[in-house]
């Protein structure tokens, strides 16, 4: 009896579906990698073409070099998150629920880690630009409890937290609503959660001045 249980347990632990001669995990992983590489290589090809165009501009006229540098800056600003972007997306509002009884104290308070998880989940679902209460998330953005508030980009934000994400709306909503996913987790905790799909929304650009005094580009020796 126990023996049978053990064997069954193993099967349950390791889902068996072997579709293409590879264990499920691996074939899924490879397909994912294949799709991503297709996208990345296309992106790199576009980037190379854009740089070549700028080099041509820089070599051409009197103001060519400045024009080329400015055009390069525009692209890097976009990739860095310094530029406001527009597109389809989802808006998720999280609010603390206050007890209906005498006390007005929140039953449950949003924690920084909940926002951190939500943002991570959105990016994992392919979000291209995310902001929380108007603060654009860039590579160096923190989402961290500081005193009574949560700081994002060193700016204090308070509930309700409005998270805006531009990307594939269908995919993001589907992932958010997975059973046991981030939203059901928050709802179980008693947080008020609302999700709104938008065919067009704006995510602002980062407006601070990142203090970058320690990192330097690796010098291209021999280049």
């Amino acid at each position: 009896m126990s023996l049978i249980l053990g064997v069954l347990l193993t099967f349950q632990l390791r889902t068996t579906s072997v579709v293409a001669g590879l264990p499920y995990d691996e074939s899924e992983q490879l397909t994912l990698e294949y799709n991503n590489l297709t996208k990345e290589n296309a992106g790199l090809e576009a980037e190379a073409a854009a740089l070549q165009k700028q080099i041509d501009t820089a070599q051409a006229g009197k103001y060519g070099a400045l024009q080329a540098a400015e055009s390069e800056l525009k692209e890097d600003d976009l990739a860095a998150g310094f530029t406001a972007v527009t597109g389809p997306g989802v808006q998720i509002t999280l609010n603390n629920v206050t007890a209906g009884t005498s006390a007005n104290a929140p039953v449950y308070v949003n924690r920084d880690e909940d926002l951190l998880n939500l943002v991570n989940e959105l990016f994992a679902s392919g979000a291209e630009a995310v902001s929380i209460n108007g603060q654009r998330i860039i590579a160096t953005s923190e989402i961290r409890l500081a005193g009574a508030n949560i700081d994002v980009n060193l700016q204090p934000i308070a509930p309700p937290f409005v998270v805006s994400a531009i990307g594939n709306t269908k995919l993001m909503v589907q992932d958010l609503n997975l059973p046991g996913g981030v939203l059901s987790f928050l709802q179980d905790l008693g947080i008020s959660v609302s999700v709104k799909e938008e065919s067009k929304m704006v995510v602002p650009g980062y407006t601070g001045h990142p203090d970058l005094s320690y990192a330097h580009p690796v010098t291209h020796s021999g280049g």
């Binding site: 400015e70 800056l73 890097d76 600003d77 860095a80 990192a215 330097h216 580009p217 690796v218």
Partner: peptide
């Protein structure tokens, strides 16, 4: 003459992750 643009470019490139970086940490 393009020092301003160059500086902005350096900041944007760090956040955009387009090049390898070195430093303490």
């Amino acid at each position: 003459r393009m020092a301003g643009v160059q500086h902005d470019l350096e900041v944007a490139r760090i956040e955009a992750g387009v090049e390898a970086l070195t430093g303490p940490g």
